[in-house]
């Protein structure tokens, strides 16, 4: 079918775009690398060369994992946004809506303000672990509060409103913690809430990679069912979808992806909201295209944002959350004006 073929071309184009931005992203930054340097560093890493020059070590231990982490986190947020907007049948939903990102941010704030409260110390993994736990716990709280025994029409709306309420609660908790905190803890909280890729290393790439791929593949399997949900719970049921099971499975996938991603990078706003919209404007709302497409475009958008965050104030860098909106919103608004998308 023609539409399917156009989808495949569009995905291929998105893939090429993603590779191109990734190459640019590893090449430029506080320090620029030539093609020769990059190849030498990659060779050194692969062969386990012991006496690698410092700049090559920086490239292979910081720059490359950071670029990959951008792709993974962007993919997680993009796919999370697509899943949640599809599930809630609502275009203004963000992946963090069910409490995940505010809970993670609260966990991170606790870590910064009261490090002594935590008896665990896992080195560099302590913060991600605490944040991820915060994200999962707050999401669980939202689910538990919104859950009713009768799986009715209102349950998705109840979930949405419960998520809003719990988010407000955690945001005020974060506000309180940053109010009582002193520098540098207070600055760390602010920085974390704007998102940062500066903690990227190969460990985080592996962990976020598992969550991203582990979420993306099953999510693609639910694309048809999510399409059926576009025409309502009853009609999806009539088409053979177990709507209750679909909702909880998709929510769980979203929480897994978003909690793990947020745990390593802080709260990155807007990517999850606008990536699905950009793709819908360009290609329509078919989830069989949208899920993989939003993984590719989410990764691309975050790579571009990170590149700008690193080069605009060299050698300092901006929090990535500031840049995502600056990059994404103009694109989004211009597409919104140019098409009859919302008719």
């Amino acid at each position: 079918m023609n539409a399917r073929r156009a989808d495949r071309w569009c995905l291929a184009a998105l893939f090429v775009l993603m590779i191109a931005t990734t190459v640019a992203s590893i090449r430029y930054g506080a320090m620029d690398f030539s093609g020769h340097d990059m190849a030498a560093a990659a060779w050194g890493k692969l062969t386990g060369q012991a006496d690698m020059p410092l700049d090559q070590r920086i490239f292979i231990e910081l720059r490359v994992p950071r670029a990959i982490l951008c792709l993974l986190v962007g993919a997680s947020l993009g796919v999370g946004g697509t899943l949640m907007q599809g599930l809630f049948r609502n275009p203004i939903v963000e992946p963090g809506l069910v409490g995940t990102s505010s809970g993670a941010a609260f966990g991170a704030a606790l870590f910064y303000v009261f490090p002594a409260l935590l008896s665990v110390n896992l080195g560099g993994l302590t913060l991600p672990l605490v944040a991820c736990a915060g994200g999962v716990l707050s999401t669980y709280l939202v689910f538990a509060l919104a859950h009713t025994r009768r799986e009715g029409r209102s349950s998705i709306l109840r979930l949405l409103l419960t998520g809003l309420a719990i988010n407000a609660l955690f945001l005020s908790g974060i506000g309180f913690l940053s109010y009582v905190a002193r520098d540098p803890a207070a600055r760390s909280i602010i920085y974390w809430n704007l998102g940062t890729m500066s903690g990227a290393d190969w460990n985080s790439v592996v962990i976020v990679g598992i969550a991203t791929i582990g979420g993306l593949i099953p999510a693609m399997g639910f694309a048809k069912s999510l399409n059926a949900l576009m025409i309502g719970d009853d009609q999806a049921t009539a088409l053979g979808v177990n709507v209750g099971r679909l909702k909880w499975t998709v929510l769980t996938i979203n929480v897994l992806m978003v909690a793990v991603a947020t745990a390593f990078t802080g709260v990155i706003s807007f990517v999850g909201l606008i990536v699905p919209h950009i793709l819908r404007i360009v290609r329509g709302p078919d989830n069989r295209f949208l899920i993989l497409g939003s993984a590719l475009l989410g990764g691309t958008l975050l790579s571009v944002a990170d590149l700008i965050a690193r080069v605009s104030l060299r050698p300092a860098e901006l929090p990535i959350g500031i840049v995502t909106a600056v990059v994404g919103v103009p694109v989004f608004l211009s597409l919104l004006r140019s098409r009859e998308y919302l008719s």
């Binding site: 275009p91 399409n227 576009m230 025409i231 088409l239 819908r280 008719s343």
Partner: peptide
């Protein structure tokens, strides 16, 4: 083996008509 036609259906995101009809074949 069973289909249901309700009063009116709101489609959350606007699909091409052919795609929507094709949904009937999802099962």
């Amino acid at each position: 083996r069973r289909a249901v036609l309700p009063q009116a259906i709101e489609v959350a995101f606007s699909l091409p008509v052919r795609e929507l009809v094709l949904m009937g074949r999802y099962p």
